[in-house]
Nucleic acid binder design. Structure first.
Lengths: 230, 230
DNA sequence: CGATTATCTATTGTAGACAATAGTTCATAG
DNA sequence: CTATGAACTATTGTCTACAATAGATAATCG
């Protein structure tokens, strides 16, 4: 039954371009605020402008680029306010996921979270921060997927992606991920244990302290709305 | 300072097409599941296909249409599961808005909510259900705007829009809006009073019972994932 | 007479070219 | 020497045309 969902999609040039440009942005190959000249991208990707422009529209909706009429597109520039928005939204979405999904139904998705956590522990042992971040995102995504809520999953993925953009810009990475790696993983382990126990409130409480640290100093800087780097 | 935000934008054909098609869908001129033939739409709107296709990509991201590769776009078909997702997501976003915005800062936005509520009362007196729904949406949007959270506002608008699609299909309208109109408005009045009082928790509590009625029977039908109309 | 396959048509995917505009540079006047 | 204006260039916005594919129809074979 789950094999039915495997449908070999012909990758349209639009989807291809979306993936490629997204990767470029998140990998930092395209700098923050950098203009995305259509001609240059078409040449680079080997496609023509119509599919590229459709791809840009999608990325715009995803929040990775900003398009101003007659002035083209630029890679999104994130202010402190933006980071605040991303983090708060992420937490709200995770909360909903826990509330809906925590007396866990789909054992398969739970497996995903477990595997991601194992991967996190491996990364922490190896002190591989980059992979740890990725595994952490997989873990959280798996947690969110527990609810079986398509829109929630998509919204979360979009926010997660913007968070990756933050980290690519090193706005957020330092203060959040330069803590003790094993404590970091331990908190996630506890989270998963509570999820398995099936008590949503306990998970939510843990999630609250989980996120508190990263928010507290952010909250204070909110309101400035100033660009966070020059 | 707020006058600075007034920038007369030339409406690109893409934006024009997005608005036009969105209106057609929400007005029910395009039936649920109906195919959107590009040639027909270009002729109807008097534009060519590239801007139309960009518009379709945007609408796809917004969740109003579904596009399958090589098979074109269709107006989104909403299942019970979809309605459930929309409602739960909406509540989660409103909760976040209240948490962040309720010791209300921006008095201007608060005015918006007050005006919308006044409008609601007028509609309830006139028994104008259609306008009441619209005013209600303006009210909720104003409430969400209190937080001054751009991403939250956009996400909420998208969800709200899909909710309108539900109502256009009469999936949700009957059981939710065929209650007593004045009680409906009274609940919103209470909500706004609590917001003005500045106690987020009280607002959240009220919001919970506010939404509980509409969710309870939904929750039970979840899992069927069957199409909700034929 | 029913099922299967080949052709055909309607529709989407993509490309290249033209038109319009915003930013830039240079020249000129104060 | 600075500021203003005009021409220019780079880039976006849009259109028409071509290629490729999926669904439909009809014809043929069992």
């Amino acid at each position: 039954m789950s094999a039915m969902t495997e449908q070999l999609r012909s990758p349209s040039l639009v989807q291809l371009a979306v993936d490629a440009i997204r990767r470029m942005i998140l990998a930092g190959e395209l700098a923050e605020g950098e203009r995305l000249i259509e001609d240059r991208l078409t040449e680079q990707l080997g496609i023509s402008r119509p599919p590229l422009r459709e791809a840009l529209r999608i990325l715009e909706q995803e929040g990775l680029i900003v398009t101003r009429p007659r002035r083209g597109s630029t890679v999104a520039t994130l202010t402190d306010q933006d980071v605040f928005e991303i983090l708060t939204l992420r937490t709200a979405l995770e909360r909903l996921a826990i509330e809906l999904g925590v007396p866990v139904q789909d054992q398969g998705r739970f497996k995903d979270a477990q595997e991601a956590l194992t991967e996190m522990e491996r990364c922490a042992d190896a002190e591989d921060r980059g992979s740890l971040v990725q595994a952490g995102h997989r873990f959280h995504s798996a947690l969110v997927a527990l609810a079986g809520h398509r829109r929630l999953i998509e919204a979360y993925a979009s926010v997660q992606q913007q968070l990756l953009l933050c980290m690519a810009r090193n706005l957020y990475a330092r203060e959040h991920y330069y803590e003790d790696l094993h404590e970091h993983v331990a908190r996630h382990r506890k989270l998963l244990d509570l999820v398995e126990a099936g008590d949503p409130d306990a998970v939510l409480a843990e999630l609250a302290v989980h996120g508190e640290r990263s928010f507290s100093e952010r909250q204070s800087t909110v309101g400035s709305r100033s660009a966070s780097n020059s």
